[in-house]
Design a protein around this nucleic acid. Structure first.
Lengths: 218, 218, 218, 218
DNA sequence: GATGAATGAGGATTCATTCAT
DNA sequence: AATGAATGAATCCTCATTCAT
């Protein structure tokens, strides 16, 4: 599947943006740094994105898409909504080990207005609703359920990136989320131990970006 | 407790910074905007803070201090660690209604390197440890417990700020956090219904800052 | 008279340039806008013009040529130099109604260093000299005569483009120019009332270019 | 009359802008060139003008004001509207010799949308109307009268700047304008010979700006 | 201390031009 | 000839910081 030159460059820029966002945060990622990381000239960026903001959106979409397909790929044939949610969280959080750049970028984008937060919420809502309808989840409201799942998962990723996490952190985090949804602790513990389907290889992107010096601007 | 003029100006600047951070994010808060919001001249800022970064740190401390004292003030005389945690979350999250500026600023700062995140984790650790030791909490690890409590609380605040939250959202969120910690759902539901001690009035800061236009830079 | 494909594309680019100059001024007419208006790709431009400056010159020539031939076509068989000048001005100024794009482009180019101004001066000089030699014009100097004719005509076009002009503005303007040249007011009034020969249709160029926003750069 | 530092710098920038506009045209005057000509840093410009466009407007006003007061200062005690107009033109056009920078800037600004053109028209209208009412001027319309006066004057300035003008060019031009307005040639000739009142010294601004190389940017 | 003008490095964006296809 | 992606210099503008008053 050879990409056209144009598509290829766009993809390079997107990947570079993810790496730079991860290393320095989206607020401190000058266009020229992204272009350099992608190995193209400054102006080339603007052949592909109308502005900085358009890039942010594109990265968010890109991120969400990759994540969704990875999660979906791991689903296999299951029936229990709790299992769906558990798998989603495990894959989602575990990815932080496989590709820290993407995880950093995701977290950094999560704090912003734009779409990542709401896309995540959308993606998770159907499964939560199914679980509530089936009586599997007992929560005060959909909003509380969303907050629990997304909040725990996000902090779980953070913990892995910070190096505070045990090797099976994603399982613990998934279990905590299930408990928060009202699944009995014993069930939760059992569910998060089942093996995952093998996902496709997620093409980790090697970064050449250096971490910012502590006192750096913004 | 009359502050000296110097202290007073410093305080004005901190308050102003919180309002501007809340409105536009710390990345898009120029010094001159903060000085203007505080009603002082541009250069005055540098009589009180050595640099922009020093201000960020000071704001983070300020934020964490106010939050801690508010939470502590609400504790009263309780014994159950679960109740401590529940109260902390309810006060913490509920504050987003009382003073959205502070809440926004807190969330915005939470996504950054600096200390807010770790200070928060420090503050909850003792209570969590007590609960674990007492057998009240059943969690895979301290890291998981921290992630659950802080992640759920942060998203709960976000939900309130986004207007997605029901009037008793903080209770639901607190209950979810307790369940995540392994507290039986029935207990969790009961604990989060107990009344809070009356906290001192937290001096809501009236903002004159306008929200940034949607597509604005950063 | 079928043009070769090459000539045809060049002509398309010239026409497009006139339209874009008219809409936005030559200073704010990027090559890519001209190419787009002409319906060709960016790089095609450079198969026909060595540089942006070469285009400016070509447009100026093009403009002056079309104008001259239109004016000449309206002369018919006259003898009085005053009549020549009057016809020239009337056709010249009246053209602003028929094809405002060309008129705008002309005025915009008139303010620049390049050749349009001097070509215009050359074109009128012969007629003015004939009138002076014949004693029909009484002016202080050739320079004054040129200034009067070209200055009045240019402002007359501007007035039409601005919508400040009455339907017979070109006649009034021509009469004023004749008076400035020393032709008695009664003669001037009579001369500018004589009918013009029918000029060939000047191929009005329909523009798809949008006017620039008021505060736009340049 | 010591100006405050702020006013002083603003004035410096305005003067510098006039010189740079004169030398290279307003379209080819980068902010940094203006700042450098004014002897201040790049950013200082923006302490005084919000944008490039704001500067253009300010220069136009500045120009129009200086011109108006110079013209008014030369009026002395006259009664004939024709004399008013003649004096105005002579001073206006003659100024191109005294201060070519300002004249260039004026012409360059005249071709643009903004206010100089209309301000000029406004300034001249009252005198023209008086002349028409008094039966001194016989013109087809006010628009024609305005076009004649302003068009001839502008081209007269151009001629002086181009070095095409005789030493008494402004008188010839003024006479032509009067004739265009319907004043008998003999009267016109007489009127433009009367001496002017002595205007205040117009502070010629010495330029250090070099003329642009022929093929220079835009 | 407070002030606010000045500074200048830094970052976004545009656009004429080149060149491989 | 045409295409359109890539280039990078040029330009506008912002903003943290300094400093004379």
């Amino acid at each position: 599947m050879a990409l056209g030159k144009r598509e290829r460059t766009r993809r390079d820029l997107l990947d570079a943006a993810v790496r730079v966002f991860a290393a320095r945060g989206p607020g401190a990622a000058p266009i020229h740094a992204i272009a350099a990381e992608a190995g193209v000239a400054n102006g080339t960026f603007y052949n592909h994105f109308r502005s900085r903001d358009e890039l942010l959106e594109a990265v968010a979409s890109h991120l969400a898409d990759r994540l969704s397909s990875a999660v979906v790929a791991s689903f296999g044939q299951r029936e229990d909504p709790a299992e769906f949610v558990a798998i989603g969280i495990r894959v989602f959080v575990g990815w932080a080990r496989v590709d820290p750049s993407w995880a950093w970028a995701l977290l950094r984008l999560l704090g912003r207005e734009g779409g990542v937060g709401s896309r995540l919420r959308e993606n998770v809502t159907a499964d939560l609703q199914a679980g509530i309808d089936a009586g599997r989840f007992q929560v005060e409201s959909m909003a509380v359920a969303q907050d629990a799942v997304i909040g725990i998962a996000a902090m779980g990723i953070q913990a892995i990136l910070d190096g505070r996490a045990a090797p099976d952190h994603e399982s613990g985090v998934a279990a905590a989320a299930l408990r928060a949804l009202g699944v009995p602790p014993a069930d939760a513990g059992a569910i998060v131990c089942r093996p995952l389907a093998e996902p496709g290889s997620p093409a980790p992107s090697g970064s050449t970006v250096t971490q910012p010096e502590p006192g750096s601007y913004r």
